[in-house]
Structure formats: structure tokens, C-alpha cells
């Protein structure tokens, strides 16, 4: 890798004294910085923008976590009051619960589908691969707001296509017990409606990530297993699945983050309702921020949940690294 190269070689070679590195005398270091002023100039736009729209917001948000503020009137210091209020906040608890339920409703299904799709599209003899891939992938590049409105039509309880099909299938095949469902108008089904939308939208994205993972598995492994008499299923089970662990983990973490911070899907499809039955954490945070203008409280909530999610992600990564072992070389 280029960065592994010893400092002072590389491009600057032959122009002035070699750079002493961090351990060298101060004067040399300063000369070296001056000689590389282009480097600092070229990276400065990132750091300037990051300071204004990243670092300052991060610190200001931390401060806001300890005050009460609506954005207009005086800020009042409340210490840990915001954090104490979180424990009593039933809507926060409900939104976290909804997030968990929606995630469990769609993530395992979506990841399994994505894996199966990827396995199918990875068959060497398959033609029209690009066509199938585009069809599965297209949902995630299109504007959610439009798609959610279309899904709203499809979900319409009395006059939606989905219930029309369900009713028809129920009549034709009574033993399946299919009947129309009040998708977005009932508290029982609204989470499922969101889960279906999310599955439709993100299966293709995960499929593409898994395809990349599959293509990283050396072909010789399968050949060797074949020689040893392993059938197709055994090969998937004992070669593909273990070697795909890092990809599964990555997709799982993306789904975790995606469900917690999801916004457009619920904001447009159900507005979090009926009641708050489909309000996930992302929409809840948006509501307390920009409907209730509880800037201080919202900041403390955002920080707490972000740290929680981060800890959960670390824990899962750790676990799987320790337990798995296979496929470490992919990074």
C-alpha cells in the first residue's frame, strides 16, 4: 500500500532535505510542513466544512443535551434533567420498541431473500443477469416519497390492489385463509406495512453487496469440495455461508442503522401512525426536534441512542469476529 512507504520518499523526493518525520527536530518538521503546503491546502476544504457542519454541531449538540431550549428563547441549564426525563418518556420507549419490531419483521426476511437472490444471480450459466439485477436494485435508487405514495395506494384498505388480490386469492384458495388486511389504517398492521415497503426497497441493495461477497470466494474451494463429493447444498452450507460471514455482518449492521434512523418511509407512508404505532426512532427524533422544538431534550436523546447503537454494533462485530474467524482476509 502506498501509505506504508517510508516518510520523505514518494513524490517529494529530490526537492530539498528529506523530511525528518515526527521524531525529528522541530525546525526540520516545520520545513517539511512548509514543503508540503499543497497537501494541507488540498485537504483544507474538507476540514473547514467538517469543522462547520460536523465538529461544531457535534459539540454544540453535546452541550444542548444538558440544557432546555426551544431554539428561540433563553437556554436554561438543566444538568442531567434531560437524561432523567428520557426514563419517563413513554413515546421514546414506544418508538424504540417499534424500531425493534419493524427491524425484526423485515431484516431477517430481507437478508435471506438478498442472499438467495445473490446465489441465483451468481450462477455462471445464468443469462439476463444484468436485467434481473437491475429489477431488484432499482427500488433503492428511486425517490422514497413517490414510492411511499404509490404503496399508500396499493395498501388502501377498501380500494387498494393488495387487498383486492388478497381477497381474490382467499376466495380461490380458501385453505390459505387469506383475507384483506387494514395495512396502514390499523395499529396492528402498520408496522408490517412499513416492513414490506422496506423489504421491497432494500433487498436489491443487500443482494448486490452479497454478490460482491460471493465473487470474492475463490473458485478452487468449490472445485475441491466437489472433488470430495460435496453436493450443491453442502457446498453452500460449508463454504459459502462461513465465508460470507463478514458480508452478512456488514449488511446486518446497515439494516440496524437503517431501521433506527429510517425517516422517509414512515414519514410519507404512515406519518408514524395510526397513533404512534409505526413511529420508529428516526421519526420520533424528528418530531421532538422540529414539531415540538425540544432542541435540548432531542439532543440528549440523539446522543444516548447513537451511543447505544454504536455499542450494540461494536458488540455484534466483536462477537462475530471472535466466534467466526473465517473470512478475515476480505478487508
Amino acid at each position: 500500500m502506498p501509505t506504508e512507504r517510508a516518510e520523505g520518499t514518494g513524490l517529494a523526493r529530490g526537492r530539498g532535505p528529506a523530511c525528518g518525520g515526527a521524531g525529528g527536530p522541530r525546525r526540520l518538521l516545520r520545513a517539511c510542513v512548509r514543503r508540503h503546503w499543497h497537501f494541507y491546502l488540498f485537504i483544507s476544504p474538507f476540514f473547514i466544512l467538517f469543522a462547520v457542519f460536523g465538529l461544531y454541531p457535534l459539540l454544540f449538540s453535546l452541550y444542548l443535551g444538558f440544557v432546555k431550549w426551544d431554539g428561540l428563547t433563553e437556554q436554561t441549564w438543566v444538568g442531567l434533567g434531560n437524561f432523567a426525563a428520557m426514563l419517563e418518556d413513554d413515546i421514546l420507549a414506544a418508538s424504540l420498541w417499534n424500531t425493534l419490531v419493524i427491524g425484526l419483521l423485515y431484516a431477517p426476511l430481507m437478508l435471506a431473500l438478498a442472499f438467495l437472490f445473490a446465489l441465483a444471480l451468481n450462477q455462471p450459466w445464468l443469462r439476463l443477469r444484468g436485467l434481473f439485477r437491475s429489477a431488484f436494485f432499482l427500488p433503492c435508487v428511486t425517490p422514497m416519497v413517490v414510492i411511499a405514495i404509490v404503496f399508500g395506494l396499493l395498501y388502501s384498505p377498501e380500494r387498494g390492489l393488495l387487498n383486492y388480490v388478497l381477497a381474490g386469492a382467499g376466495r380461490a384458495l380458501p385453505f390459505l385463509g387469506l383475507k384483506p388486511v387494514p395495512w396502514i389504517t390499523s395499529e396492528e398492521w402498520s408496522k408490517a406495512a412499513v416492513a414490506v415497503l422496506v423489504t421491497w426497497r432494500w433487498t436489491g441493495y443487500n443482494m448486490v453487496l452479497m454478490l460482491a461477497g460471493l465473487q470474492g470466494i475463490p473458485h478452487e474451494y468449490y472445485e475441491a469440495a466437489k472433488v470430495d463429493g460435496a453436493g450443491p447444498l453442502a457446498r453452500v452450507r460449508h463454504i459459502t455461508v462461513p465465508l460470507m460471514r463478514p458480508t452478512f455482518l456488514f449488511c446486518g449492521l446497515l439494516s440496524l442503522l437503517g431501521t433506527v434512523y429510517m425517516f422517509d418511509e414512515v414519514f410519507v407512508l404512515t406519518r408514524g401512525g395510526p397513533g404512534i404505532s409505526s413511529t420508529n426512532f428516526g421519526l420520533y427524533l424528528f418530531n421532538i426536534s422540529f414539531s415540538d422544538f425540544r432542541f435540548g431534550y432531542a439532543s440528549s436523546v440523539a446522543y444516548t441512542v447513537a451511543l447505544g447503537v454504536f455499542a450494540a454494533a461494536m458488540l455484534v462485530t466483536r462477537r462475530s469476529r471472535l466466534g467466526g474467524g473465517a473470512g478475515e482476509g476480505s478487508s
Binding site: G8, A12, A22, C32, G54, L64, Y261, S289, S299
Partner: peptide, 30 residues
């Protein structure tokens, strides 16, 4: 292409680290 610039590697690691900041935390101050 300027790996010899003092601090280049640390600054790059810092840039990568900023990817972990969730947008939800910085939304109100932004």
C-alpha cells in the same frame, strides 16, 4: 500522493473516523 506530509496518515484516519458520526446527532445544530 503526498504520503510524506507530516500527519498525513493520522489526518486520513481522522477523515475515516468522521464517517461514524450519525447525521441524527448533528441535525439540530446543523
Amino acid at each position: 500522493k503526498y504520503p510524506g506530509a507530516p500527519g498525513a496518515r493520522k489526518l486520513f484516519a481522522f477523515v475515516l473516523g468522521t464517517m461514524m458520526i450519525p447525521g441524527a446527532v448533528t441535525l439540530i445544530p446543523t
